[in-house]
């Protein structure tokens, strides 16, 4: 499980690491929208270059980005084959029995491939360069306008940060319980359907019981330290918007605008 690269923070220092999380989340959202404007290969080339520059600035190794893409490959392959076979527009390229592949299908599949890769790489850059806590803080700030209509911004942010804090702990716990049940003869990968269900039950129930126990302990610990979700609190981590953030944001808006214009013009 340690091999999961997707969504993992990489603790190094870089220009992108130092940017404001609000900027990074906002930019990702804009860029994700821009990806879906069909600006042709030229547009994707432009966006691709931009993403490569971001990746270089973030000092993330190519191998780490490839690792993030790897777990998604199966899903991508599935999507692409599906597309290739079911889009029947343009000129027929290949025809073997009932399999017919058209040039438009190849083109569109290629687009989808490029889009998915761009999305994964951009998201990886965000999560790899932003500490989970900063990410939460950024989300909380971005959501704060909704506080006025009664949206529990602070509670949501607290929930996310606690979830992030406890994911490694619960993963460890899962492994521990699996090993404990394996010691009692459970084989998680083998057996009939009935045995499989029983083995999953033998994992899930202890996991839930322990998670509830942790939740109760945590609630007590938080309350003992004077936490009250309704009361006003200050925040230790302050977000400071810098000149570099403004300039970066301007660049993102420029790129996005160019892409949108291109999609209409071309």
């Amino acid at each position: 499980m340690n091999n999961m690269m997707f969504g993992k923070y990489i603790p190094i220092d870089s220009f992108i690491h130092r940017l404001d999380p609000r900027l990074k989340i906002g930019s990702l959202l804009l860029l994700l929208i821009a990806v879906f404007f069909d600006a042709g290969f030229l547009g994707y080339a432009l966006l691709g270059i931009f993403v490569i520059i971001m990746a270089l600035l973030s000092h993330i190794k190519v191998s780490q980005i490839l690792k993030a893409i790897k777990p998604m490959l199966f899903m991508m392959a599935f999507l692409m084959i599906f597309n290739l076979l079911f889009i029947q527009q343009g000129n027929l390229l290949v025809s073997i029995g009932f399999i017919k592949i058209y040039d438009q299908a190849v083109l569109q599949t290629l687009y989808i491939f490029i889009r998915l890769i761009l999305i994964i790489v951009m998201t990886t850059i965000l999560t790899a360069t932003t500490k989970p806590l900063d990410l939460t803080l950024g989300i909380e700030h971005l959501l704060s306008p909704f506080k006025r209509i009664g949206f529990p911004t602070h509670e949501v942010a607290m929930m996310i940060s606690i979830a992030l804090r406890f994911i490694p702990t619960l993963l460890e716990e899962t492994q521990r319980i699996m090993k404990a049940q394996a010691s009692r003869g459970v084989e998680f990968s083998e057996g009939s359907l009935k045995e499989k269900i029983l083995s999953i039950v033998s994992l899930i129930i202890p996991l839930f019981i322990s998670a509830f126990q942790r939740a109760e302990d945590l609630a007590n610990a938080m309350e003992s330290r004077n936490y009250n979700p309704e009361a006003k609190r200050t925040r230790y981590k302050q977000l400071i918007w810098k000149i570099s953030d403004t300039i970066s944001f301007a660049c993102v808006i420029m790129i996005c605008s160019v892409l949108v214009i291109m999609s209409f013009v071309l």
């Binding site: 806590l133 804090r165 942790r214 004077n226 936490y227 009361a231 609190r233 981590k237 302050q238």
Partner: peptide, 24 residues
């Protein structure tokens, strides 16, 4: 494990201060 609230030591010590509205 069940009383460590922050994601780092620094944040955990800060948690109570935040609740007591200490100036950041």
């Amino acid at each position: 494990d069940n009383q460590f609230i922050g994601s780092t030591v620094r944040d955990d010590i800060a948690f109570g201060l935040e609740n007591n509205c200490v100036d950041p």
